[in-house]
Structures are given as C-alpha cells and as structure tokens.
Amino acid sequence: MSPEHKHIVKSFDQDLQRLQVLFMELNALVILQLEKASMAVIEHDKHMAKKIYEDDDKVDAIEFEITQFSLRLLAQRQPLGEDLRRIVSAFKIATNLERIGDYAENMAKRILKSENHRKLHESNPFRQSFLTLTKVVMNRLEEVMKAYVENDAETAQKLWKKDEEINEFYWQSFQEILNFMIAHPQDIPFYTDLLFILKNLERAGDRISNIAESIVFIKLGSLKVKKEN
C-alpha cells in the first residue's frame, strides 16, 4: 500500500509508529547482546558474560511490551488486511528477536559455566571464522529490521535466501573444527564449546530468516516469492 494513504484515525498510525520504535529498541539491544557475546567469547570475559546474562531480562521486557501492545492493537483497532498481517506478525518477529537474544545469552552461559573455555587468540585458526560469522549475523539482523521498518519485501526476500550462506559457512567451520579436534584431541573440550557457540550463531541466522519471511508475508499477504533451492 502506498505510504501516502494514512489511516483516517491518526492515532492508529501513531500506534503503528510506536510498534516500530519498540522493534528498533529491541533490535538494537539484541545486536548489542550479540556484540558483547562475541567479545566475551574472544576475550573469555566472564564479567561481560555475566552482564549479557543479566541484560537478557531487558530483552524479555521489550518483547513482552511488544506482545502487550500488539494485543491491545488487535482488541482496540480490530485490524484487517495489511494492518492485521502486520500486527499478527509483530508477535512472531518479537519472539524471533527475543530468541536471538537468548542465543547471545547461551553463548554467555557457556563462558560462565564451562571450565574449558579460554581466549580465542589471534593465532587461533578459528578466531576469524567466529568473528566473520558473528559479523554476518549482526549485519543481517540490522538489514532485516531495516527492511521491516521500510516494509521492503524485496530486500527481505533476498535476506531470506541468504540464510543458506550462513548455514554453509557454519557447516564448513564445523567440519574444519572437527578435523582439528581429531588432530588435537587434547583440545576437544574447548572446541566442543566453540562448536556450541557457533551453533547459536547459525540458529540466529535461522531466526533472521523467519523475520524476513514475516516481512514478505506482511507486504504480500502470502509467501508467494518462494525460497530458491
């Protein structure tokens, strides 16, 4: 729908604007959590990990606020058409963002609980793989939420397809780490932790893909533009 067609009831537009602001807050927080998790993994920073663990409550609180707000919008506005799709999708998108927050928290927990973890030094052959994957996930998250705000189904569709790249990168790293573990059995506990951490990033990629799918649905009312095999 063309953006110039505003709702006759102006406060409905303001409500939808408010929903976007809440999503931006949630997204900024989740990206920060991922960034901190990345640093905590590299530096084996337990203090940072603890902070991530504590801040997960903030992520949950914004997700809850979005849920409550969307419920109110459903009851109050009784939306139809694209508005209905947007508000119903808000529940899903908020859940997906919250789960990405949980993955950052999972990474932090592993650092806090595992006795095997240590710094990922520059000399570590997998430091770069980990940093690359983290960066890709954070960038994708930023892009997908930009597409959400701009109601840009085309970009969302591209990002949806790009999830395969994250999966491939993860499996490639997985295989390399596995081979490394076979060659260096004394490091198995540490690299097992790293595999779990990478798996969390791969799962975050899946969640981003879900968000992209929701954006396509909001705009088109269907999942017409199919994922290419």
């Binding site: 729908m1 067609h5 709702h7 006759i8 139809l80 058409g81 694209e82 508005d83």
Partner: peptide, 10 residues
C-alpha cells in the same frame, strides 16, 4: 481500494 477501505485509510 479494498485494502484502503478495510484498513480504514483515506
């Protein structure tokens, strides 16, 4: 036009 009508847009 239907979309605009059912979503209450002018």
């Amino acid at each position: 036009l239907t979309q605009r009508y059912i979503t209450g847009r002018g």
